[in-house]
Amino acid sequence: MKQVFILRGLPGSGKSYYAQSLADELVAGNESDYVVCATDDYFYNSEGVYQFDKFKLPEYHNLNLARFINALAEEIPLVIVDNTNIKKWEFIAYAQAATALGYQVKEVIVGEIKDKSLQHLYAKRCEHKVPLRMISKMAYMFEW
């Protein structure tokens, strides 16, 4: 069965950890049987340092969507979208492409969105140093 998981959640909520755990569970971590598509991947420079640039975000989202569609076209059994996906429109193209190509699609919300104490925790553990005020703003804007 071909599956797509679209992860949604605040920065620091554990989406990337969840994605890897899911791959380990469903395909035993066999790298040829899954792809994790994360826009964050494009913000790493050649030395492996994460450098966020808000002006590159639209371009990198498009590159991530293209990588996702390529994985579907290659019929990779498990494809995971690891983005915040705060608004529904942010992941609708992923869901529609997957459905059109015969994949079962599951939307997974990782972590608690509205819990203020957890937002503090997410800000502390977020690898990309997203500030608490931005995480709180994203929680407020989250579409169910």
Rank of each mutant, 00 (worst) to 15 (best):
F43N: 08
Y42R: 10
T99Y: 03
D53C: 08
T99F: 05
R67M: 11
L57D: 07
N62Q: 15
A73G: 06
P11S: 09
A19W: 01
S136R: 10
A19I: 04
K137T: 10
I69L: 03
N45F: 05
M138V: 10
Q20G: 07
K87Y: 11
D53L: 12
E59V: 09
V110E: 12
P58K: 01
V49T: 14
L57G: 01
E74D: 12
Q96V: 02
L63H: 10
G29Q: 04
D53I: 00
M134I: 15
D53R: 13
Y44N: 04
Q51E: 14
Y103H: 09
L65K: 14
A23H: 01
I6G: 04
A71G: 06
D24S: 08
I6N: 02
V4C: 14
E31R: 11
G111Y: 10
R133H: 13
K88D: 05
E59T: 09
N45K: 07
A23S: 05
K15G: 10
I76K: 11
F55G: 03
Y103L: 10
G102D: 09
F55T: 13
D24Q: 14
V105F: 10
Y50V: 03
Q20K: 15
D41W: 00
Y140R: 15
V36I: 15
N70I: 04
L118V: 03
K56Y: 03
R67V: 02
I109R: 07
